[in-house]
Design a protein around this nucleic acid. Sequence first.
DNA 1: GTATGTGAAACGATTCACAGCT
DNA 2: AGCTGTGAATCGTTTCACATAC
Lengths: 212, 212
Amino acid sequence: MTQAPIPQTTIQRLPVYLRCLLQAQSMHMPVINSIGIAEMAGSNAAQVRKDLSYLGEFGIRGIGYDVEDLIGHVSRWLGVSVSRHAAIIGVGRLGGALRSYGGFEDRGFRIVALFDTDPEKVRSDVGGLPVDPIEDLEEVIAQRGVEVVILTTPPEAAQALLGRLVSSGVKAILNFAPVRLDVPADVMVRQVDLAVELQVLSFHLANRDEER
Amino acid sequence: MTQAPIPQTTIQRLPVYLRCLLQAQSMHMPVINSIGIAEMAGSNAAQVRKDLSYLGEFGIRGIGYDVEDLIGHVSRWLGVSVSRHAAIIGVGRLGGALRSYGGFEDRGFRIVALFDTDPEKVRSDVGGLPVDPIEDLEEVIAQRGVEVVILTTPPEAAQALLGRLVSSGVKAILNFAPVRLDVPADVMVRQVDLAVELQVLSFHLANRDEER
DNA sequence: GTATGTGAAACGATTCACAGCT
DNA sequence: AGCTGTGAATCGTTTCACATAC
């Protein structure tokens, strides 16, 4: 059934399935079944089938899923069948690393703009992409069709810029600054906090014994 | 009650609460209530109280929580009251950026080793920390008491190194490589896949209308 | 009066198990 | 025979609402 609300958890697994399917494709597998996807994705077969069933009925009973076909469907649902334009705000070390990280272009995103407040950084970057001053934010976002913003500024700057991003019509933000950004309901923020991830690991180290 | 299994979801929120508490402390607030924590953390009061109640009874009814005191308790549960030693494997752009990211030292982690396969990179790094060759992995991990490994290598290298890490006694891995690492039950992996995060955002852009 | 701590209710996600299709 | 698609059962998490303590 196409008309059903797709669980948040399913949405988060779809990109993983897509990566596995692309890998299967590169291995020239014409067909894959739910067990195969589950093994590659570190999930289980029932979960994979249920997740995919939210998108539609793409499988062939007794056989499995056509790899090529399923890649098309999942990509379309994820909105990455055409490349989306992204901007990085904050060209420090992390921002710079992300800019030259090849993994985005392959997976549906093109970095089309870089911003920084530091006037010294406002110059041509390694990848031939100029670093624009933060003053030009609205203009550049509109001109280059930026849909997703990757924030790698210090926390205060992230908070301060938020209003301008929202009124520029940006609806998707990937935030690396360790602050909660509160945004209107139609804007989505995904938070990546590396210290949080490490602390979760640390919790398990600290409580290994008591766990069962 | 101290003797209860702490939900996974609670564990993931504790680091966020800790960050908020530290911020409250830096603002010289002696006491904070669950509503205050919830607002800073982007959660809700009932959730905060339930989460904290898994760790013990730290609040004062009618008043709230002593900030200093609660920081101590949460830090202890997270195992970050003493600094933990971490290593970064793969000193490419991302690894390099993480190495110089100040946010770790403040929040309970010290980077004590860097590794790379590239013999050209095996030299002294910006922070005065030498890049060790991957051959010395086991030795350096043991000598410097590395508990957490941050993997920023290409996917194939991550998979290949896993066995050596596990047999070196590493029990916590933060993996940036877009592969599922499968590890023994007593080893914990946290996966950070930036393309996955972007694709989740993209899903919402693509399905904004149908969502409710 | 005010805010915590917590059973109980409501909600959402996962797993089970099998009918239905190839 | 084999594997998908899916209701139903199970499990875990969140939210509610209030007794309890200050």
